[in-house]
Amino acid sequence: DHDVVPEDKFQETLHLKEKEGCPQAFHALLSWLLTQDSTAILDFWRVLFKDYNLERYGRLQPILDSFPKDVDLSQPRKGRKPPAVPKALVPPPRLPTKRKASEEARAAAPAALTPRGTASPGSQLKAKPPKKPESSAEQQRLPLGNGIQTMSASVQRAVAMSSGDVPGARGAVEGILIQQVFESGGSKKCIQVGGEFYTPSKFEDSGSGKNKARSSSGPKPLVRAKGAQGAAPGGGEARLGQQGSVPAPLALPSDPQLHQKNEDECAVCRDGGELICCDGCPRAFHLACLSPPLREIPSGTWRCSSCLQATVQEVQPRAEEPRPQEPPVETPLPPGLRSAGEEVRGPPGEPLAGMDTTLVYKHLPAPPSAAPLPGLDSSALHPLLCVGPEGQQNLAPGARCGVCGDGTDVLRCTHCAAAFHWRCHFPAGTSRPGTGLRCRSCSGDVTPAPVEGVLAPSPARLAPGPAKDDTASHEPALHRDDLESLLSEHTFDGILQWAIQSMARPAAPFPS
Rank of each mutant, 00 (worst) to 15 (best):
Q242Y: 14
Q243P: 11
G244V: 11
P247Y: 14
P247G: 12
P253S: 08
N262R: 07
E263T: 09
E263N: 13
D264N: 03
E265N: 15
C266W: 06
G273N: 12
G273S: 08
C277G: 07
C278I: 05
C281K: 10
C281L: 08
R283K: 10
H286M: 09
L287R: 12
A288D: 07
L294D: 09
P298I: 15
P298S: 06
S299A: 07
R303M: 04
C307F: 08
E314M: 11
E314P: 12
P317H: 15
R318W: 08
A319G: 07
Q325Y: 10
P327N: 10
P327M: 13
P328N: 07
E330Q: 07
P334L: 07
P334N: 09
S339C: 14
A340T: 15
G341D: 02
E342I: 11
G346R: 06
G349N: 09
D356W: 02
L364Q: 14
P368F: 05
A370E: 12
P374E: 04
P374D: 15
P383K: 06
L384A: 08
L385C: 12
C386E: 10
C386G: 09
L395M: 14
A396F: 14
A399C: 13
R400G: 07
C401L: 03
V403L: 10
V403R: 05
G405T: 06
G405S: 13
T408F: 07
T408C: 13
D409I: 01
V410M: 13
L411A: 06
C416R: 03
F420I: 03
F420L: 02
H421C: 04
W422Y: 10
R423Q: 12
F426S: 05
P427S: 06
P427I: 10
A428D: 06
P433I: 13
T435N: 11
C439H: 00
R440P: 05
P450N: 09
V451C: 03
G453V: 15
G453Q: 08
A456T: 14
P459D: 01
L462H: 13
P466L: 11
T471K: 10
S473F: 08
E475A: 08
P476R: 07
L478V: 08
R480M: 10
L487D: 08
T491S: 15
G494W: 08
G494M: 06
L496A: 01
L496G: 01
Q501N: 15
Q501V: 02
S502Y: 00
R505S: 06
R505L: 15
P506L: 01
